[in-house]
Each structure stands twice: as C-alpha cells, then as structure tokens.
Design a binder for these strands. Structure first.
Lengths: 129, 129
DNA sequence: CTCTTGAATGATAGAATCATCAAATAGTCA
DNA sequence: TGACTATTTGATGATTCTATCATTCAAGAG
C-alpha cells in the first residue's frame, strides 16, 4: 500500500524548500508545454490541451495533477469539459525569465568557446568547461 | 557499469525540454540555498558555502556538480580554494520571480479560504481545492 | 617526495518521479 | 436508469534523483 502524494504541496516549509517544490512542478517538458499554452490564452480546455500536446488523456491528466499540486494552475469544470488557467501571471513571467537566462547562458558558452579558440586555451584560467 | 550523467546538460533539445532541465537543476532545497547565497555576493568560496549550509563537503559538491551541469554557476579555482559565482544575473531574477509567484499563489489560496468561509461554500463553484 | 588541506568524484541503497495501462468518476442525454 | 463522453484516479514497473559514505584529485608546504 504505497503512499500517494498529497493533493497540495506543503507551503508551510522554509521558503527555499517551497521554491524547490515549485521548480519540481516545472521540471518536466510536458508541463512546460502546458503552461506555455496556458500563458497564451485566457483559459484552455483539457480537450484542447490533448490535441495540442498529442498526449493520451490519462498521461496529460497526471501532469495536470502535478501542476495543481503546486498550485501553478486552476481548473474549472463546465459540463463535460474542464478548463485550465494559469494560477498567476507570474508563472508566465517565470517561463520568460527562464528563456532569457537560457539564452544568456547559451550565448556565454558560445563566447567562451570562441574566446578559447581565438586566443588559445592557456589564457582561460579557472573556467571549468 | 552504470551510465553517469553528462558533465553538461544538452542544450540542443527543444526549448521546452531545455527549460524543464533548467528547472530540474533548481528542484532541490540545497541548490536554492546555494544560488541565493551566490545571488547576495560577487563570489563565494566552497568553504563559505559549507559553513553557511552546514553540509558535508561531498554532499555540497554533488549539488554544485548539478548546478554546473545546468550551467547555473561558474567556478574558479585559486590555490586550494574553489570559488563559485552565478552564471548569469537572470538566475537571481528567476528566484525573485518565483518568490513573487509563491506569494501571489499563497495569498490567493488564503483569500479563497476566507471567501468560502465568509459566504459559505455554495458560491464557490468550479474551484478545486 | 610525503603529508595536509580543500574539493570533487565514485558507488550504491533508498526515495521520488516518470510512463503507461486499467479502472473509476462526473456530467449529460434519451 | 443506462449509455456515452470527458476527465481523473489508481496501480505498477522503469528510470532518475537524493543521501551518504568511501575514495580520488588538485594544490601547497616542508
């Protein structure tokens, strides 16, 4: 009899733990794709998410459950359909900052590479690569 | 003979995968604490990180290795000491946005709770809690 | 060269997450 | 009520991550 995860993550922990948990919720490609779809519309139905992601219903639902657990999304049922929205606009901001960070980091990596090939490797000291 | 993870994560994947990987790098409390210490200083030595976190050296080193893998930090050796810095200021920005998001989400949760107790539960429709 | 210090890497058991299929639940309609 | 649709939940094996101890590596001094 295995313990299932809580419906909602615990927010009463130290902030660094709560942050780490939030990032756990973001640490899967499907969940990033879902959040980005939700960022681009006021709300999205599960059936539209299914179409957009090409996933099987139960697979997507497990991921939506994780997003709900970390309160990254809200859901609302209307008849047979379920609609999802971002819980807060800062979730979209977070994805945007992550994108900027990745671009910077990638550019810096390329620059380091160019720098080391242009000047030889002896002047690059202390950089682990 | 088990495969060990690559020294550096693959940045040549679709962007949503690369983002998810970045968030994996952030998905542990110790690594959040380290990044926040690095956000507050131009550079920090490993020995200072050890003191600040109270971790054993090899435990911290494993986490620093994850941060290096996702290029969230840079390291520089000077004699016996190793110094770490944030790879980009946007890493600090990311933590700040996450904090704002958590605050908003937490406040919204509290408001929902107050709303439902003030008006009774029958007017709260569609909200999963 | 040996020894010490500071830090990284290796190894591995246990915990957590992921992937996927089966079953259950919620809502609607005849 | 039963049948159907839409979605969620349960179950479980595979994979990955975490925690932790042992070992190795890098730098410096004598």
């Amino acid at each position: 009899m295995k313990d299932s995860p809580p419906e909602y993550a615990d927010f009463r922990a130290p902030l660094y733990e709560v942050k780490a948990n939030l990032f756990k919720g973001l640490a899967h490609p499907v969940r990033i794709r879902v959040l980005e779809l939700l960022s681009a519309a006021p709300e999205v139905s599960v059936s539209d998410l299914l179409t957009a992601t090409g996933l099987e219903a139960s697979h997507l639902s497990q991921h939506l459950s994780v997003l709900r657990r970390y309160r990254l999304v809200k859901s609302e049922r209307r008849g047979l359909q379920q609609f999802y929205t971002l819980a807060d606009p800062l979730a979209a901001e977070l994805l945007a900052v992550a994108r900027g960070l990745l671009q910077n980091v990638l550019n810096a990596t390329k620059e380091d590479l160019e720098y080391s090939t242009a000047t030889g490797s002896t002047t690059v000291d202390g950089d682990n690569r």
